[in-house]
Structure formats: structure tokens, C-alpha cells
């Protein structure tokens, strides 16, 4: 068989991807994350389950990517500030075809490309090293400025968390993005109201997060981060808006979403899953998705 020249590597995303297909992608992302959690016996699966719908819309509708060519210059950039959400992003990258499915077996193991905290030098598709929270949005500002300098039309996305908003550096970046009219910058805040020491609204209450960004000169949307239709509308608006302001989507998510016994488990930053519960969690996820799809 001869290889015919293809005009370009196909992209993973499709700006017309139907909701049912996006929901199926989100289900797969959740499933990959649980599998990785099972390998390691732990992991931030609560966050991964919560953010899976956001990642499905990002990777299968919004972002312009070439899975076989993660460093393709024309790609939209997706920066993960929150290094501990790596398990969720790996799941999305696996689902998008950037990382082979088999590799999830190596999650968090020695010499793996999938360390517990996301780092650029380890993983294809991981744009920055997160983990020291409060750095992603500022790097996104620099990349947004750089892309504008090059005169190319890509977007820079930054996924950050509600707890991360406590870092003042985030607000230096927020002010700067508006000052420079970075309409190519789309921030997504995972508002799951949970951080290391408790509910984010109690640890360092930020009040109305969307209103704060608006006051900083941003276009802000507040959506149910587990409502696929609402997410699609929000991402489409953020991309298509004719407005010089940077955009933020504050996505209210439910940790553990899709696995009812984890949704209702006592909410902590790090949801404990017992050894015998992983299979059950995957089974419940499968059943739930099948019922919803039927």
C-alpha cells in the first residue's frame, strides 16, 4: 500500500461537533481518568470528573489542534495552570489522540511521560509546567502578546482554578490582559468551590468571580460547567465575540460528576477512593452514560 499525501493532518476538533458526540467524549475522558486513578490508587479524580465536560468542549470543539503534531505552530495554545489537574488533561489528550491509550497504564510511575503534576518537558500537548499556582494566566498574557506580534490568529486558553484566584499574580495578569486588549486570550476558571483547606468561598472568598473579571476589563460568562449545551455556547461566544476584551468563562463544576457515589462523598480537595471502589466507579460511570445516551 502506498501512502498518499494528505493535505494536512486532520484536527481533533470540529466546530460543529454535536452535543451527543461531545458528551461521549466527556464520558471517555472521565473513564480514562478513573483508569489512571486506579493505576496509581489515587489521584485528583474528583477534579478530573468535574472538569471533563469543559475539556471535551475545549478539545473537540474549540481548539484548533493536530493530534499527531502537538507542537504545530498554527495550534491554539491550552495552558494548564493547575498542575494537579494533569490527570484530567492526560485523559483529554488520550481521547484527542495526542497520547496513546496504552500509556495511561504508566500514570505517575517512574520514567512515565505522565507525572502526577503536569509539566511541559514530560508530556506532548502539555504547554507549560503548572503546579505553582498563579503562573498560567501571566504566561498566557505573554503568549497572547507574542501571537499578536506574529500577527497570527490563534487563541491562548488558560484553565485555572477558583482557589488559584487567591494568588495575586493572577490579578496582575488579569489587569495586563485587559490593558493589552488580548481578545485572543480565553481563561476558564473551574469554580468547584474546593481547595486544599476547604471551600474556596471560605478559604479566601472572591465574591462574584465573573464580576471581578468584568471589573478588570474582561468579557465574562458564568456557566454550569457540567451542562454541555451551556459550555458549547460559552466557548463559541468567547471565540466569536467581536470585542477587544479578553474573555473568561467561569464554569461551576461538581467534583466527582458522573459517579454519583463520588459526587456525594464528603467534599475535600483530594477525594479518597478505596481500592475496591475503582471498578465500581467505572461501572457506575458506564451505566450512567448508557442510561443518559439511551
Amino acid at each position: 500500500m502506498s501512502l498518499s499525501a494528505s493535505p494536512s493532518t486532520p484536527t481533533a476538533s470540529d466546530t460543529n461537533m454535536p452535543l451527543a458526540e461531545l458528551s461521549r467524549r466527556a464520558y471517555h475522558i472521565r473513564r480514562h481518568a478513573l483508569k489512571m486513578g486506579q493505576v496509581q490508587g489515587q489521584g485528583y479524580v474528583g477534579q478530573a470528573l468535574g472538569i471533563a465536560d469543559v475539556l471535551a468542549v475545549a478539545y473537540f470543539r474549540a481548539l484548533n489542534l493536530r493530534p499527531a503534531e502537538p507542537e504545530w505552530e498554527g495550534r491554539d495554545r491550552f495552558l494548564l495552570s493547575i498542575g494537579h489537574y494533569a490527570i484530567a488533561l492526560y485523559a483529554a489528550l488520550i481521547e484527542a489522540g495526542v497520547i496513546p491509550l496504552e500509556e495511561l497504564e504508566t500514570y505517575g510511575s517512574d520514567d512515565s511521560r505522565l507525572p502526577m503534576s503536569g509539566m511541559a518537558s514530560y508530556t506532548p500537548g502539555m504547554e507549560i509546567s503548572g503546579g505553582s499556582l498563579g503562573q498560567g494566566l501571566g504566561i498566557a498574557v505573554g503568549m497572547g502578546l507574542g501571537l499578536k506580534r506574529k500577527g497570527t490568529g490563534q487563541f491562548v486558553y488558560n484553565l485555572l482554578s477558583d482557589g488559584e484566584l487567591g494568588e495575586g499574580s493572577t490579578w496582575e495578569a488579569a489587569a495586563s490582559a485587559a490593558h493589552w486588549k488580548l481578545d485572543n486570550l480565553i481563561a476558564v476558571v473551574d469554580f468547584n468551590n474546593q481547595q486544599a483547606d476547604g471551600p474556596s468561598t471560605q478559604v479566601l472568598g472572591m465574591g462574584d468571580i465573573a464580576a471581578k473579571f468584568e471589573a478588570f476589563g474582561w468579557h465574562a460568562q458564568f456557566v454550569d460547567g457540567n451542562d454541555m449545551e451551556a459550555l458549547v455556547a460559552a466557548f463559541d461566544t468567547a471565540r466569536e465575540l467581536d470585542d477587544p476584551r479578553p474573555r473568561v468563562i467561569v464554569a461551576q463544576t461538581l467534583m466527582g460528576q458522573g459517579v454519583p457515589f463520588l459526587e456525594t462523598r464528603e467534599k475535600t480537595h483530594f477525594i479518597r477512593v478505596d481500592e475496591d471502589e475503582w471498578d465500581k466507579a467505572i461501572e457506575v460511570l458506564d451505566t450512567g452514560f448508557a442510561a443518559a445516551a439511551a
Partner: peptide
């Protein structure tokens, strides 16, 4: 020239972002 304001943390972050896009800040 990019004026980043009185925000040194941002200066470093934005410099990192610029370098990621192929510039030498």
C-alpha cells in the same frame, strides 16, 4: 517595547510566554 506595569511577577510570566512564542525578551 512592552510596558508591563509595576508587576514584576507578571513581567517574568509574560517574558516566559513571549519566549515560548519564539521571541527573546
Amino acid at each position: 517595547f512592552y510596558q508591563m506595569g509595576m508587576a514584576e511577577q507578571l513581567l517574568m510570566m509574560a517574558g516566559a510566554g513571549m519566549a515560548r512564542e519564539g521571541f527573546q525578551p
